[in-house]
Simulated scan of single mutants.
Amino acid sequence: MGDLKRVPVGIVGASGYGGVQLVRLLMDHPGVEVVYLGGESSAGKSFSDLYPHLSHAVDLKIEAIDLDNIASRCEVVFLSLPNGLACQMAPKLVEKGCKVLDLSADYRFTSLETYAAWYGSDRNDEEIAGTAVYGLPELYRDRIKEAQLIGCPGCYPTASLMALSPLLKQGLVLPETSIIDAKSGASGGGRQAKTNLLLAEADNSFGAYSVGGRHRHTPEIEQVCSDLAGHEVRVQFTPHLVPMVRGILATVYATLRDPGLVREDLITIFRAFYRSSPFVKVLDGGVYPQTKWACGTNLCYIGIEVDPRTNRVIVMSAIDNLVKGQAGQAIQCLNLMMGWEETQGLPQMCFYP
């Protein structure tokens, strides 16, 4: 792939966990050159001031956020910012011809009313928001290839939807019976200081949060489920915090329409559904995924079981929340947008043990 044109890329919000994952992955990507790192509170600092362990590889300063400057230097811009900020920047960047990949929730929703209800901010960028494509390549690959603005999925929705999509698209389950029981490592909470993420608080403990349909990722999951099923779908989603750094395991339960389906049938269906998806690994019968297998990779491991007593299918989905659940998936979308090999620059070998 030595003939790849090296595309100039910028990252706005490079100081957080999503930003540093983007830097790590893009520095190894043969098709891009990182030319701009932007931030507000960290502007003026060297990137190595924030991450000293990368001083040998990244010789860039965090610059102030100036959209005209960014657009003049970058062909592609990743926005790795808190919710509510990307929608103030993306319209101008798109207007100036940049391809924009937003890692926040700002462009994940087809309805801005839904966004406002869950994220509490009104918007005036309806026109540009209407052009955004949901950045889950396994479902929307063809649309992503043609897009200029991508709303990259959340980490919980990615893990959950990988497990649910074949079931809903093929009409294999009763959609309203879908239950998602998901667990995430502490890096999903970001790099800001938060009491519940302190080692003394989180270690040797395990608990649920945002119970009862209160988590902001719920409407995002339901939006895609409804699209797949062809009618409005409600799911039960309960997230948990696990005392580990990286990884999400989503265990999904749903009632089968056909009680005659067995595990091997579903494995065959899932493998056919994901046959063109190089990052999805549907495991053999009796093998169940572990988060460590996906650590540091852009892979999603899926295990499937059927309980004939309850007529339920149980699908387990494991990803690295910072890679397939965030930065890696954004780069997977970039590869599609640029017409490159989908796997370009993305790791498929985990950190193990």
Rank of each mutant, 00 (worst) to 15 (best):
D227W: 12
A294T: 10
T310H: 09
L334S: 04
V282M: 11
Q290G: 08
Q326N: 15
F270D: 04
T238Y: 00
N298E: 02
G285Y: 07
A272L: 11
V245A: 11
A272F: 09
L336A: 04
I267P: 04
R312H: 15
A327P: 09
Q290Y: 02
C300I: 09
L299A: 07
Q223R: 14
D307V: 07
Q290P: 00
R309N: 15
T238S: 01
I314P: 06
L322D: 05
T291V: 15
M316E: 13
K292Q: 15
I302M: 01
L336T: 05
V233R: 06
N311Y: 05
P308D: 01
P308V: 00
G345F: 10
Y288T: 15
E232A: 05
R271M: 10
T297N: 04
G285S: 14
F270G: 01
P347I: 10
V242Y: 14
W293V: 03
I304F: 01
I319Q: 10
R275T: 13
R271H: 10
V313F: 04
Y253I: 01
I302E: 01
A250G: 03
M349P: 00
K281A: 05
G328A: 08
V242S: 13
P278C: 14
N335A: 05
L266K: 07
R275D: 13
F237C: 01
R234G: 08
C333N: 12
T268P: 00
V282C: 10
E264S: 14
V235I: 13
T291K: 05
Q236M: 12
S277V: 13
N321V: 10
P308M: 00
K292M: 14
C350F: 06
P278V: 13
L249E: 07
A318G: 11
D227S: 14
R271P: 08
H231Q: 13
A330P: 06
S317V: 07
A229M: 05
L334T: 08
P347G: 08
D227I: 11
V287P: 04
V245K: 12
L334A: 06
D227K: 13
R271L: 08
N298I: 02
R309Q: 15
A229G: 01
T310N: 09
A250F: 00
G247R: 03
R246W: 02
I319T: 09
Y301W: 12
R275F: 03
L336K: 06
T291P: 01
T268I: 07
I314S: 06
E341H: 12
Y253H: 14
L283F: 05
V306S: 06
P347L: 09
L266G: 03
R234Y: 04
S277C: 15
P259W: 02
N311T: 13
R309W: 11
L334P: 04
I267V: 14
V245Q: 12
Q223Y: 07
C333R: 05
V280M: 11
C295G: 00
M337C: 02
I269A: 12
L228E: 09
E342L: 10
Q329H: 05
N311D: 12
G296N: 02
N311A: 12
